[in-house]
Amino acid sequence: MAPVRRPHGDPVPVYEDGSDNFTLEVIHGGDFVGSGCNRAYVHGTKVCFDDCDCDSWSALWLEDLIEDLGYETAGRIDVYWLLPGMQIDALSMVSKVKEGRSTIVQEAGIRYFDDLYGVRATVNVYEPKVKKDSKDLSQTGIQINNGPKDQIDSIVVCYSVAPGHGGDRFSRFHVVWNDGVRNMSCVDLNCPGFIQVSHNVGLGGRVQPVSVYNGPQYVINIFVFKDPKTNNWWLAYGEDKAVIGYWPSSLFTRLKDKGDFSFWGGNVYGPTASLDSPQMGSGHFPSEGYGKAAFMKNIQIVDGNNKLVTPNKNKDLIGTSDIRKYSVYGYKVDNHGMHIYYGGPGILV
């Protein structure tokens, strides 16, 4: 039986003991204010959907419910869930399923919404465990997007462990671009697109050294920025911001001018990333802190004045797709940018 939207003013249903039915409460149309444990969602409208069935319930029902509320799911709609009685800092993003690819995407990190002309971060490098024969991958990096959900242009710079792609379980450095309008994408130099001008960093090459749990810690510095004269997007690497190459603006439809969204943190992708989730970051929950949990620091953006600045903390959203497997901790903002610990053990919890 499909969930039933409760008319305004109708009584709350009473389910029999042992019933598999439940009520879903949706609060929409509001705004997030504050950050961390002080975050709140205000000015929202509450709508209830009764007679949801545990046996048939799926996150895919949410698309129908969102449309029932008058939203277009083809747009960029993010849906978050919270267990009854939990505080909003335990907010989790509903895992997204990419239709036709059977690819589960889970994440933990910072989502940011603003006009963006560049993004940077210092990334703590680990080698998260992904099963040898798995087609899943675990990656950490920075991402800048523009466009609605089904037509997103994006640039991703990351390290990842992907046995099904690289044939091993080492952390490797990658650059990825995508034009969602023309449905074109490419990783590293596997097709024309990214133009490498320096070979000091090997695309697809192994990242060494990597951090050791409760031992030495190592980082990489990543900076993606738009050249205001040519409109090309450049990649700089290392503390000295040495340029590695660029993405010509002609590759993109919606990123030609600017980005409107960025993500800093970890992702896991793959057909079994939900049921057999690999590790993210160090493979330990971020509450363990420095030397044991993966971190990202010095998170900054390039604004409309072409200045590298600290992001506006009122425009970010910190969270995880599954708080049982991955989480975010230690979020703070200072003159050097945003800083977080993130990651987790995945299914090994």
Rank of each mutant, 00 (worst) to 15 (best):
Ala121Ile: 08
Arg111Asp: 09
Ser160Lys: 15
Val105Lys: 10
Ser171Met: 06
Leu189Trp: 12
Leu137Ser: 14
Val187Pro: 01
Ser134Glu: 01
Asn146Gly: 01
Asn190Ala: 13
Arg76Thr: 07
Met86Gln: 12
Leu116Ile: 15
Asp188Phe: 07
Ala121Gln: 10
Ala74Asp: 10
Pro128Leu: 10
Tyr71Arg: 00
Gln151Gly: 00
Gly118Ala: 10
Thr73Tyr: 11
Val125Trp: 04
Val181Asn: 06
Asp68Thr: 00
Tyr80Trp: 12
Val181Ser: 06
Gln87Pro: 01
Ile77Ser: 00
Trp81Tyr: 14
Ile152Met: 13
Thr122Val: 15
Tyr71Ile: 01
Ile144Tyr: 04
Val187Gly: 00
Ile104Pro: 00
Gln151Leu: 03
Met86Pro: 00
Val119Leu: 02
Val125Gln: 03
Pro148Gly: 00
Asp136Phe: 05
Tyr126Trp: 15
Gly166Cys: 03
Asp68Tyr: 00
Gly85Asn: 06
Glu72Cys: 09
Tyr117Ile: 02
Asn190Gly: 13
Lys132Trp: 09
Ser102Gly: 13
Arg111Ile: 02
Pro148Gln: 00
Leu69Ala: 03
Lys98Glu: 14
Val187Ser: 01
Glu99Pro: 06
Tyr71Met: 00
Val105Pro: 02
Val119Ala: 02
Trp177Asp: 03
Gly180Trp: 10
Gln151His: 01
Phe113His: 05
His174Gln: 05
Lys149Val: 01
Pro148Ser: 02
Ile110Lys: 07
Cys191Asn: 15
Leu69Arg: 04
Tyr112Glu: 02
Leu83Ala: 14
Asp168Thr: 07
Ile155Met: 05
Val181Gln: 12
Ser171Phe: 03
Leu82Phe: 04
Leu82Asp: 02
Ser134His: 01
Tyr126Arg: 06
Glu99Ser: 07
Val119Asn: 01
Ala108Lys: 08
Asn146Lys: 12
